[in-house]
């Protein structure tokens, strides 16, 4: 078990309350089940999953740190490296590809001046290609935080980027379970 005295990070009181809510969904002693939701929460709180953040989650759930690392590195939504504030995740799987996913990625690359997989110098945007997001009928599309942006075209991309820059549309980009 983690030595909690060594841990330097801490969730906000709201997030701590959510952790209790997640744990309560599972029978006593099965609190490990809450690790997946807790890691989402940790990303919302700290941006990405630093080792000390994962150790903190392990201490909250009374599980071994390695159990958290194993989970954190398995699932593709978790960022184990630092990412930008807005992570643009463009679906590039078959059905989206048939309707212009590559072109959408290229347009983002041009607009943001970065390549797929990179983060802008100001730390605002990370551009990723991701696998099927179950929105094949409204391709091309991307996800940013909680939201799906569907049937995209260049004008919609422009508007989205402007909204992010103005921060009037998306205040808390990372999705959490309420």
């Amino acid at each position: 078990m983690s030595d909690s005295s060594k841990i330097s990070v801490q969730f906000s009181p709201e997030a701590q309350a959510l952790v209790q809510k997640y744990i309560a969904k599972f029978p006593e002693g099965k609190q490990k089940s809450a690790v997946i939701a807790c890691l989402h929460l940790a990303q919302a709180e700290f941006g990405w999953l630093k080792p000390e953040v994962m150790d903190y989650v392990a201490s909250l759930l009374n599980i071994k740190p390695i159990e958290v690392y194993e989970v954190a590195t398995f699932y593709s939504q978790y960022y184990t490296k630092e990412v930008g504030k807005y992570v643009i995740e463009v679906c590039h799987t078959g059905p989206c590809w048939l309707r212009g996913a590559d072109e959408l990625i290229t347009y983002f690359e041009k607009k943001l001046g970065i390549k797929k997989g990179e983060t802008t110098a100001d730390g605002m945007f990370t551009l990723k290609g991701v696998e099927c997001l179950a929105a094949c009928g409204s391709a091309p599309m991307f996800q940013c935080g909680m939201n799906y942006y569907e049937n995209m075209d260049e004008a919609k991309v422009d508007a989205f980027i402007n909204d992010c820059r103005a921060e009037n549309k998306i205040s808390r980009p990372y999705p959490i379970m309420k």
Partner: peptide, 10 residues
């Protein structure tokens, strides 16, 4: 009855 989530894994 509870709803719970994954984190990206087909």
């Amino acid at each position: 009855l509870h709803v719970t989530c994954g984190a990206g894994a087909y």
